[in-house]
Design a protein around this nucleic acid. Structure first.
Lengths: 359, 359
DNA sequence: ATGAAAGCGCTAACAA
DNA sequence: TTGTTAGCGCTTTCAT
């Protein structure tokens, strides 16, 4: 019988193996492997060759154990969430620039944040970046007593926690300003419920419509972060009378559900209703969705999160604990001026909100 | 000035610190921390308390370095992909059952598979599970020379590689059988292009329509794995004449794009056209999508992947290198019997395909 | 430019 | 039940 390719071969080679193979000390091999000056070009070359030949990879555990610092930043993320996915991508880049490694720990069904964090603690991460964590502030604060903690995309007010987040209220100002500039006056905001950021976006909506003197022709409809939430809210929206001409939605996922229900109900977008999302996720960019949306600056947020972690580790004196990143509006094809066919003669002052639920 | 909560406190406590604090040997502390029998209840309690008090967490790098085995399985996944997300969730569970830890390494923009794998090699993983890898077989084979490699959701034929995948062809048989049972005869398959599994699904479609004697009234339309691909394919579909009454689509994402375009074109689903997806992703389950789809058994795949890695590590004699998991059909609301209103008098033999592009 | 030796925090013999 | 000792693979003084 021919021996098949061995899938469990001999013990992995160590520094000592490489050293022995070349006939030098482990010290020299260590230098060469780390690209540190102090070895003759000849030996450098021979050692490189031997390492390659033996298939040597340094053992990061041993390295980390020996080094005083791990240069490791832990990241807790929701493995299911596309926004977190984007952020993780950005974090890899930012960490590389800052000469740190990332250790990923996922939150998944059956694996909660505490477990994710615990595993990172064992890995000797020097700091933690938590993406939209839902743990109680007390837990986060306790962690912060151990090591620098950077919370991303959730607003937590605690003097030991660093926060990097989008200016959610400003995002809704952008959305409402855009709609008003197009000529809309009857608008609705579909809410994110208890999702992180939802309260601020709701507040931003209220502030913006008030600023435009449109409070009386504004609504907030209960919603949530998912497509399903959006679909349900859209059904409620269809019952509204007079029907608003524009909708701001908590996020893109939710907006997708809204769009789908409107489309199925024969309501054209942006012909009859304009829709604005939030996040500028891949969802929004799809050519057949092409959603006008408030974009979070993921690259900047990732960069700030890593930089803040690094600054804390370096003991750099940083000012604010909370870093608020400005969003910007991406206008695509789900917003347009309202059609000038009011269902009733225009009333200068809107009727009382209660009237809407009648008839 | 009041000293704010320190975010970079004293050196992390070690086993020795705990031991000194209690006044016992490190051995004893080690036993207790690992829940190994061999310590008196009294000491066990005192040590536990001291560890808690000092905020002690074992250093997994030191543990791993010292233990002969790391009991670590590396997972390479695409941080953006919802299907990979689901799998990672399943893998955590399966790994826990098998008493292994998972080390995650993401593929993201700017971080390719080689980098993801390299980092896992340094972490001294004993085996690697690669989710839908796109690296060339040669690279995977080379890896397999070092350690057990389990490839999930991609078909690779190599005697050193283990593969866990869904029976894609069978999935399309299920889909077509379902449609035919409903009474459909003019069908179309929207293809996945070069995506993993696309070729097998296409083949399954061809086999199934042939088996039903429907080859002449079948089409394959070029598509791809994304919503955009589906949207484009759907536009091509709308130009088909006579229009097929049912569509099988490469995957759920693509099917979503198809549904959206159909909806916007005023084509009712399942009234005028039935649609079947593939994956049973969260997308398909959304109440407003409610897509009939071929479900991959994620739980079983995760379990098999971990078990296979474990068996290789244990040297267990396993038979097949390729584990093929049967999918099943989830019937939801996008499939129904065809309406019996042919746009023209039924022709027994379909007109030549070229005719479609005319007029 | 090179090497010897100590030790990172832990576990696994072995002894007591 | 408890302690002593050696050493995992590496980096880091300190010699040479």
């Amino acid at each position: 019988m021919a021996e098949p390719t061995r899938s469990t071969p001999r013990r992995r080679p160590t520094l000592a193996d490489v050293a022995a193979h070349v006939g030098v000390s482990t010290t020299l091999v260590s230098l060469v492997m780390r690209d540190v000056p102090g070895a003759s070009p000849v030996n450098r070359e021979r050692i490189r060759r031997a390492a390659e030949e033996l298939g040597y990879h340094p053992d990061s555990r041993a390295q980390l154990l020996r080094r005083s610092r791990s240069r490791l930043i832990g990241v807790v993320f929701r493995v299911q969430d596309p926004f977190d996915g984007d952020l993780v991508g950005g974090l890899y880049g930012a960490a590389g620039d800052a000469d740190y490694e990332l250790a990923l720990s996922a939150v998944a069904p059956g694996r909660d944040e505490r477990r994710a964090v615990a595993s990172l603690l064992q890995d000797r991460c020097e700091a933690l970046i938590l993406l939209a964590p839902h743990s109680p502030t007390s837990f986060l604060a306790e962690l912060a007593g151990r090591m620098p903690i950077v919370v991303v995309a959730r607003s937590v007010r605690h003097r030991a926690l660093d926060v990097v987040r989008t200016d959610n209220a400003a995002g809704l100002h952008l959305a409402v300003d855009h709609l008003v500039a197009l000529g809309h006056s009857r608008t609705v905001h579909i809410d994110g419920g208890r999702a992180p950021g939802a309260a601020e976006r709701r507040r931003g909506y209220h502030e913006a419509v008030r600023r435009h003197g449109l409070t009386d022709s504004s609504h907030v409809l209960p919603g949530g972060p998912t497509e399903d939430d959006g679909a349900a809210a859209a059904r409620a929206f269809l019952d509204l009378h007079p029907r608003p001409t524009a909708v701001t939605v908590f996020n893109d996922r939710c907006a997708t559900g809204v769009l789908d229900v409107l489309s199925k109900a024969g309501v054209s977008v942006p012909g009859q209703v304009s829709v604005v999302g939030f996040d500028d996720s891949r969802l929004a960019r799809l050519s057949h969705v092409d959603l006008t949306t408030v974009a979070q600056n993921i690259g900047q947020m990732s960069h700030l999160a890593v930089t803040r972690a690094k600054d804390r580790l370096d003991g750099t004196d940083v000012g604010e604990r909370e870093l608020v990143v400005s969003p910007h509006l991406v206008v695509r094809s789900t917003t347009a001026p309202p059609t000038t066919t009011p269902s009733r003669p225009t009333a200068t002052t809107a009727s009382s909100p209660e009237a809407a639920s009648l008839g």
